[in-house]
Write a protein that binds this DNA or RNA. Structure first.
Lengths: 336, 336
DNA sequence: TTGAATTTCGGCAACGTTGTCGGGAACGAT
DNA sequence: ATCGTTCCCGACAACGTTGCCGAAATTCAA
């Protein structure tokens, strides 16, 4: 039904060979100016578009990169994706986005899908369920370029781009403490995620530096990073059921922040009167919340850009890259 | 660097021809059980994955569909995308998402990008800037299956899936009127978008049915659908500068709703005391806003699913489809 | 005018896969 | 013993494109 014009059609119409047409279109010096003119004119007339699939088969690369994130509805990721696209499109690469919805199974399926689909490289932020990363190590060992961002796998030796999660967490916690809160809880994602570890570390450091004890009961992990309402609700209820209820909470994620507010609203807990909140979030909409939330902003767009640049460097490298680096970008504490 | 296993490798290793291996893997009856067993075992051992690019070239289809939306950060679209993916993945199709950011130029580039990339079909929601749709008519005439959702182009005769925008707008406006508001403004996207026309129509009908006059000064269009803060701000300021200031506003979009709240916050206009708001939005986060907004919810997930099913029907049809339909799904007024 | 160099183009192969065709071997029936 | 079947499998072509090689045509130098 949908039959695109091919180089053959042009060759036949003009009485030339396909090779000649191909080279005329590529503007090789071996083709006379006259022939070039005729070919180019005719190609334009019938709106010839080279078939990228044939090219991919021949060149053994698809000029596309795969992106694996938990979900695009997350402000952090949608901003990162914009950064990714801005670089990729400039360099002539397609971006194929896939969502894990924080599920390990979907992550494996999506990664394999993308790899078999012959993407030239992968930008990955792990799902909160993921502990086994063998689906990625296999591909990485076979030479597929991978760059991690946000939620990284330290076991794989490749480029990584993250925010300064520890410092950001420290600042947010410190901000709560400086505002007089003393019983500060921490709501975070699954404990094996790199971001969880780093943010927890910053939270604990801030407490210690301010002479406060770390209360393990105040630290709550949500395995699905706030994707499930009940998960967040259970965590909050447990916190509120403690004999020494926390008076503030440091939330370690975009999705968790909104989930948290949602639970508080349903439980009729006033923010910030009954409970102060500060946390990681890149949501512009959250600013509308009244009173606004103090939040740690990550340079998501820049992280996306930087990760993409590093990935393209790996993809286009002539010799296998051996030296990898981890870039750490500073966060921004938005006090409100 | 990254050299996937091919059918040739298997053939060579097993002393068979590529045809035999191919048919053994496809489980054709012409291959003996013994040979099949050997081939399948070896293929599994070396983790053979068929090359989808070679298949695409041969089958002249890519088993992928392109999606064109304004941006994934929009709750409506991210939900619709989830619906699209749920159907597409089940049917073995890839989903390639591209964002226009409400720009006509990017829409043209993205559509051409996707078409040349040999997607088997397109799911399109027009950008707010788009008036000329020749980039789509060309492809459609040449036989590329296209299904519109949300922002449709009536000039192209194909399947369309939309929400009942007129009814939803009517209900929201009527709700404001029933709550005692009399001077109801309407903030909407660019005037040529189908959704704008339909929602404006519902708004006007509700006013008339309640014996209120339609005041043209109360109707404000934002060409970029709220993508630009200043655009929304200007519109609001003009409304607030009228001698008969509106006491309520019906907002016709996700992005506009948040933009609107943002402007009100900056202008220190209290919602809903100084100004009541009701509008189209699928944002869960907006519910956290205190006091919550009454909003018209679209069944975005269902719309995405339905549009995808219709597109796949077009793609897989044996004979060209001549009969097209426009599906209209009901909205849900969430009173808060 | 002859040989060599240059210009310009066509033929062929290949990327990975499958459809078509054809052929050899084994088997059964007459 | 002969013929027809059936069962298995390999050779070839094709999808659209480009790299490589060769060859014809043209130009240039001596």
């Amino acid at each position: 039904m949908f039959e695109p014009v091919t180089i053959k059609d042009i060759a036949k119409a003009l009485g030339l060979s396909t090779s000649t047409v191909s080279r005329a279109l590529r503007d090789t010096h071996e083709i006379s100016a006259a022939t070039k003119k005729v070919v180019l004119a005719y190609a334009k007339e019938i709106n010839y578009q080279p078939n990228p699939i044939a090219l991919s088969l021949k060149e053994r690369r698809s000029k596309s990169i795969g992106v694996v994130v938990s979900e695009v509805a997350n402000s952090y990721f949608s901003q990162a994706i914009n950064g990714i696209e801005s670089i990729a499109y400039d360099r002539g690469y397609h971006v194929i986005i896939s969502q894990t919805h924080e599920s390990y199974d979907r992550e494996v399926i999506n990664v394999q899908h993308l790899a078999s689909r012959s993407v030239d490289g992968l930008l990955v932020s792990l799902s909160s369920e993921t502990t086994d990363i063998s689906h990625l190590t296999h591909l990485h060992e076979r030479g597929l370029p991978i760059v991690f961002f946000d939620r990284v796998a330290d076991a794989i030796n490749t480029h990584k781009v993250i925010a300064n999660n520890e410092k950001g967490a420290y600042q947010a916690t410190d901000y709560l403490i400086k505002n007089g809160y003393k019983r500060i809880a921490h709501l975070t994602s699954s404990s094996h995620l790199s971001i969880s570890i780093e943010r927890l570390s910053g939270y604990e450091a801030a407490l210690k530096d301010n002479g406060l004890a770390v209360n393990p009961q105040y630290i709550k992990h949500c395995l699905h990073g706030g994707m499930l309402y009940t998960e967040t609700e259970t965590a909050i209820k447990e916190l509120m059921g403690l004999k020494e209820k926390p008076d503030a909470i440091f939330v370690a994620g975009d999705r968790l922040s909104t989930g948290c507010l949602s639970v508080f609203k349903n439980l009729k807990i006033a923010v910030p009167n009954d409970m102060a909140i500060a946390g990681f979030s890149n949501s512009d909409v959250l600013d509308l919340f009244n009173p606004s939330l103090t939040s740690v902003r990550q340079p998501a767009f820049d992280i996306g850009q930087m990760a993409t640049e590093m990935l393209l460097q790996l993809i286009e490298a002539k010799y296998p890259v051996e030296e990898f680096e981890k870039r750490i970008l500073e966060t921004d504490l938005c006090v409100r």
